[in-house]
Amino acid sequence: MKKFTVILAISLIIPFLLNSCSKRNREKTVVVYVSEDRVFSEPVLKEFEKETGIKVKAIYDTEENKSTGVMNRLIAEKNNPQADVYWANEPIRAEVLKQKGISQPYLSKNARTIPDKFKDKDGYWTGFSARARVFIVNKNSKEKPESILDYINPKWKGKCVIANPLFGTTTTEIAALFTLWGKEKTMDFLEKMKENKVLISTSNGESADLVAQGDYTFSLVDSDDAVNRIKQGKGVEIVYPDQKEGEIGTLILPNAVILIKGAPHKKEGEKLIDFLLSPETEQMLAKEDCAQIPLHKGVNPPSQLKEISKIKTMNIDYFEIAKKMIEIQPVLKKWIEN
């Protein structure tokens, strides 16, 4: 009896431990690391499986460790890559990977119809389905903010929120300002924000809630956060900042997909990239809570948002931003802590 149990246990354990290697070569598979939220990305990948019969093995980032997981893993695996594709939720990470020599160029046929400013010209990464950095504004306010400079306008003193610039898309936004305005002007802007008693929240989600509840009048958030609050029936609306002549425009952050250098399943990886860059995927990601703005012409944006061609977008170089982000971290930290 005892021996039987032992044999049973071993025969169950060994295959479990090793199954990932044994099955590996038989089935067509593609390995993808994903930073876009799992709720949104998983259905797309399932669709890809259904359409192509290629098995998708994915690793998703978690909320808790925001995006340390898969990026660090990609970097640590550099010498013996395991992933074929990385689906980043914004282009800066894709730039970082390019600079670290972890990506390889791939010009997908579906990338042709995506505007040049949302992709790397050599094909090291390609953008799709974007977020815009917009103002979520409480409808009770008679006046609306129009520019990011309203954060330092005394008329809004104590009425606006911004998410912690040490994390996520807010970091990108500040870094973008550094590239556009230079260090002096941006630092001055940051200092004045403090004087203007701008509240620092943990996340864009919290900022959006604070505005939706009426505690604050406006906040810069990701467009999907704003769309969600509108869908929940909250009394808020969206304002695209800096749309006027001579203003800097709205920051657009597309998802980005890259092919990993030395990808073990290169062919399948390319197929997945083609799929992700297709208008159909953009359509999927425009729906429901995901609410991303499509970059292909002719794909309908979420009803609450404008078409990409109708937005005055910020004229920036993602490469420059990626470089800036590393530079400004200590500055931002100091700023937060004092």
Partner: peptide, 17 residues
């Protein structure tokens, strides 16, 4: 390995949105 997860990871995956 890719393609596998555990409950704690899954939970934290879905906690985003």
């Amino acid at each position: 390995p890719a393609g596998k997860d555990t409950l704690s990871v899954r939970l934290l995956n879905y906690m985003a949105n």
